[in-house]
Amino acid sequence: MSRETILASIRAALPPGQALPELDNFGLHYDDPIQQFITTAEAVGANLQSVDNRGGIAAAVQAFLPGASSILSHVPEVPCKNFTRDADRDPHAYSDLDLIVVEGLIPVAENAAIWVPDSQYDDHAAMVLTQHQVIIVRASDLVDHMHQAYAKVAAAEVPRFGFFLSGPTKTADIEQSLVLGAQGTRSLLIIMIRDESTSTI
């Protein structure tokens, strides 16, 4: 009933038709998208570690959080610790999680955002309840900007859940003072794999 009332009131009020503009990505291109991504990632509070190939992942994770009390890893190079992968777990159990390790699919140079859909982890809750986070990206997957990123997202089946993540959580709600680690992840390490020839996912 509300539905019909609302649609009728909209139809009675519609402005003259206006064409949808052609999507344009403005030809924005970074000469060095890797450097642009790294600089921006650091500016939004992320830590960044470049590695030559996947062989460097384990050491980078270890160096980032040597004392991690628990690790939930979604990559073969890093073992889980005091946590096992269980897709049917009650999501509340992730409140004890110290570190999660996942792969990101589309790193974006302009804003250091990384597309991480739910194919990359067992539970969305684990991604936000964890204290710390590692996201692994390949330099060869880098796109310049969000127009390219969404073209890639739209080309695949849209996941039930997915997010662009840019840096650890933050707030400036108290007198504009930036505080990293507001409610979700306190810190984020992005591991960038530079050598695409040896990478496999």
Binding site: A113, M146, P159, R160, F161, G162, F163, L165, S166, G184
Partner: peptide
């Protein structure tokens, strides 16, 4: 997503841009 956070706080994008489907 290119316009929102830059206009709001000067960030390049919000930390979370979450898509629920």
């Amino acid at each position: 997503t290119r316009l929102l956070a830059r206009s709001a706080t000067g960030q390049p994008i919000t930390t979370f841009t979450s898509h629920f489907h």
